[in-house]
Every structure is written in structure tokens, then in C-alpha cells.
């Protein structure tokens, strides 16, 4: 294969002249990080709610939690994204749908990708939360209630603080997955990191440099996230439980 390597391409100016190709990649990285962090916040919030719902006594609320998890976990991510982006505006009342479609395209794409990634990851987080709560001795819930705490208070002060500290390691891998899954946003045109790399290929015809650079950037992001989560893990270990020393 007679490939013509050119690593200097990243410092070359883009045809529109407003930045270098490296600038494009960093801009893509910014969108990837912004999207992933926003989606992760949504996922933690929704995931906690639905995870807790799956463990409360009764029939309807756990059923609701289970329905959410099954729906969002069993439909391919790409299908969900297309549904949020293409189908949802058509299902809303005409005026709302049109209003959404007149927004800045970048904002539309970001919103659709954020909802998609957030709700999808939430289903997975919900399962971790449920597992965390389920791993606690049953006596903890009983003790909380016996002390006179209400059920929400028992969750707030006894069950959730314990279970969250136990599930930090599995949450780390979900957190990493958000960053990797964020690449699907490129299919609806959001110019995030993987889309920028494709754009680089189109403009410079130097595919290998572009893909290698993007691989390294994803790796860098994930190493930072992993380091951060390791730190959280070491600070939040519960003595006497799984993962503690």
C-alpha cells in the first residue's frame, strides 16, 4: 500500500480559513464532552428514580420502573436516536413540531442526542441502582423504618447512600460507555468528535491520520474519566463491603 503519510495536516488551515484541522478536532471533542456530561447527568437522575421505583413495595411503581428499563434497554440506540430526531417532532402537535424544526440545527441535534443518550443510559443506571439496593442486607430497610423514618427518608438517608457507594465501579463503565455511545450523534449530523474525524477525511483525504488522532482523543477522555472515578471510588468505599480494603 503506497499511502502518503502527512502528520502536518493537523496544523494546516481549513478551506474556510477560520481554524486549523486540529482546531476542528478540538471543537468536536468539546461537543463530545458536553453531550456526554449532559447525558450522564440526565442518566443519573432518571436512572436513580427508576432504579428506586423498581425496589419500592407495591406493584405499580416497580412495574413502571421495569417497563422503562425494558423499553429503553431493548431498542437499539440508533433506532432510539432516529426516533427522537425524526419521529418525535412529527408526533407533537403541528405548531410545536414546526417550532422545534425551526431551532438552530445544531441545537436540535444536540437536544435529540442528549435525550437519546440520557434516557438510554438511564435504563442501564437504573439496573445498577436496583442491584445496589438489592445487595444491601434486608435489615437495613427494616431498621430505617423501625427507627421511625418514612420510606422516602429511609431511601434518602440509609439505602441510597450505601448503595451508591457500592455501585461506583459498574457506574464507571456506564460513564465510559456514554462517551463512546455519543458517537452515534454523528449520524444525525451533530459535529462531534467522530463526525469531525470523518470531515477531516473528506477534506484532507488523509484517513489514517484522522482516525488515529480521534482514537487517541477518545482514549484520553476515557483515561481521565477512569482516573476521576477511581478517585471517587477510593474516597467513597464503605469499610466492610465489597471493594473496600
Amino acid at each position: 500500500m503506497n499511502y502518503h503519510w502527512n502528520w502536518g495536516v493537523f496544523l494546516a488551515r481549513t478551506p474556510s480559513g477560520e481554524s486549523t484541522y486540529l482546531g476542528w478536532l478540538l471543537q468536536g471533542l468539546w461537543w463530545t464532552v458536553a453531550l456526554s456530561l449532559a447525558a450522564w447527568a440526565l442518566a443519573l437522575l432518571l436512572g436513580t428514580i427508576f432504579g428506586v421505583l423498581r425496589t419500592v413495595p407495591g406493584r405499580w411503581l416497580p412495574g413502571l420502573g421495569a417497563a422503562y428499563v425494558e423499553l429503553f434497554r431493548n431498542v437499539p440506540l440508533l433506532v432510539q436516536l432516529f426516533s427522537w430526531y425524526f419521529v418525535m417532532p412529527e408526533l407533537l402537535p403541528r405548531a410545536w413540531g414546526d417550532a422545534i424544526k425551526q431551532l438552530d440545527p445544531m441545537l436540535q441535534q444536540f437536544l435529540a442526542a442528549w435525550l437519546c443518550l440520557g434516557t438510554f443510559t438511564a435504563a442501564r443506571v437504573a439496573e445498577q441502582v436496583r442491584a445496589g439496593i438489592g445487595s444491601l442486607p434486608r435489615g437495613q430497610r427494616a431498621a430505617g423504618l423501625a427507627l421511625g423514618l418514612t420510606l422516602p427518608q429511609t431511601y434518602r438517608h440509609v439505602l441510597l447512600p450505601m448503595s451508591f457507594r457500592i455501585i461506583v465501579p459498574p457506574l464507571t463503565s456506564e460513564f465510559l460507555n456514554v462517551f463512546k455511545n455519543s458517537a452515534v450523534a454523528s449520524t444525525i449530523g451533530l459535529i462531534e468528535l467522530s463526525r469531525q474525524s470523518q470531515q477531516l477525511v473528506d477534506y484532507t483525504a488523509q484517513p489514517y491520520e484522522a482516525f488515529i488522532a480521534v482514537t487517541l482523543l477518545y482514549l484520553l477522555v476515557n483515561v481521565v474519566v477512569m482516573g476521576g472515578m477511581r478517585w471517587v471510588e477510593s474516597r467513597s468505599r464503605v469499610p466492610g463491603f465489597i471493594g473496600s480494603k
Binding site: 478551506p15 474556510s16 449530523g189 470523518q198 473528506d202
Partner: peptide, 12 residues
């Protein structure tokens, strides 16, 4: 369409 010459021309 992403990756076409039109995209490039239009941005420019």
C-alpha cells in the same frame, strides 16, 4: 450530505 463536495462548497 456529509462528506460530499457540496458540503465543502456550501460552507465556503
Amino acid at each position: 450530505t456529509a462528506g460530499t463536495t457540496s458540503e465543502r462548497l456550501l460552507r465556503k
